[in-house]
Amino acid sequence: MEHQHQDYTQYTTTTFFNDEQFIHHILKWDDAAIAYWEQLSGQYPDKRAAMEEARTWILLLNRQPAYHPGTDKSQLWKKIANHIAVDEHRQQHYYKPLKLVAKWTAAAAAVLLFMIAVREMATHGEKSFSTTFGKHEQVILPDESVVTLNGNSAIHYARSWKTDKPREIWLNGEAYFEVKHVAIKNRLQQSDSFQVHVSDLSLMVLGTKFNVRNRRSITEISLLEGSLRIEKNGAGAFVKILRPGDAFMYDSSKQLLTAMERKAPANKAWTANELDLDGYTLQEILDVLEDNYGYQITLATPALAQKRLTGTVPAANANDILFVIRKVFNLKISQQANHLTISQN
């Protein structure tokens, strides 16, 4: 051990007592260290007493006999071993099976959770309904509004309608809406509105009944109750507010909105399986047959196209309509699969 030569003239008992090297030479045996302190003791005779005292202190502290208790060591170990045995027993018979059960339960729960999550994910997002030719379908929306879909029509909407967002629905084809009024009286919020996206228009309503027909770039909006606002964004933007009974027609190719000759109630006659022929030309009736029932129709006598008719005909199926027009206009209708050729008889 290297000794740093200190000035020991100022050393007292306490400084020796606290000197690491001094402690070391007493507690850890090493000849060099002992020789060093012996030599020092000769060098500073006046420090011998202090050194002696410090040495005695260190030895007194260090050589304290270990305490021997009145209690028994082997008895204590027996107690400990006993505790350990009991603990081991518990581990084997309770905790381990319990842990196993917990492990399996956790695994089962994880699988279940995963399955639920997968299902949620799969069904999350949009919900859609569509009808084939000639079929009607009623869809009840999450807010209990009712949509009646005419044949060959489709709607889709976000599965979950958040209460702070407007209700939104996308339409292709024709549908009659009975929208539930959710707004608190005199307190209209954006979130209370119901929006129908059709063509490039947005129809904003509260609680209303209206029919929307979207065929061949023409969108017809017929309001029966309540109020409805037509919004067109982007190029040629406009806003039109409809009153009950109003029926408007929008041509998306011309971006033009015009009032319709036909009245609103007539436009929803289909929901009762009827066709209100007021204001329909024969061509329009044939369009309905194509759009809703999936026929391809060739009008061999173009002059017939603009002929008109009044009254309501049953329209539970296409044959009803065909029967009526054949009789009224005295037509010859030849059918090949879903292709109809119509000519004057």
Partner: peptide
């Protein structure tokens, strides 16, 4: 335990 019983008790 055997080794440290006395030192720890002390």
């Amino acid at each position: 335990f055997d080794r440290y019983y006395t030192p720890l008790f002390n």
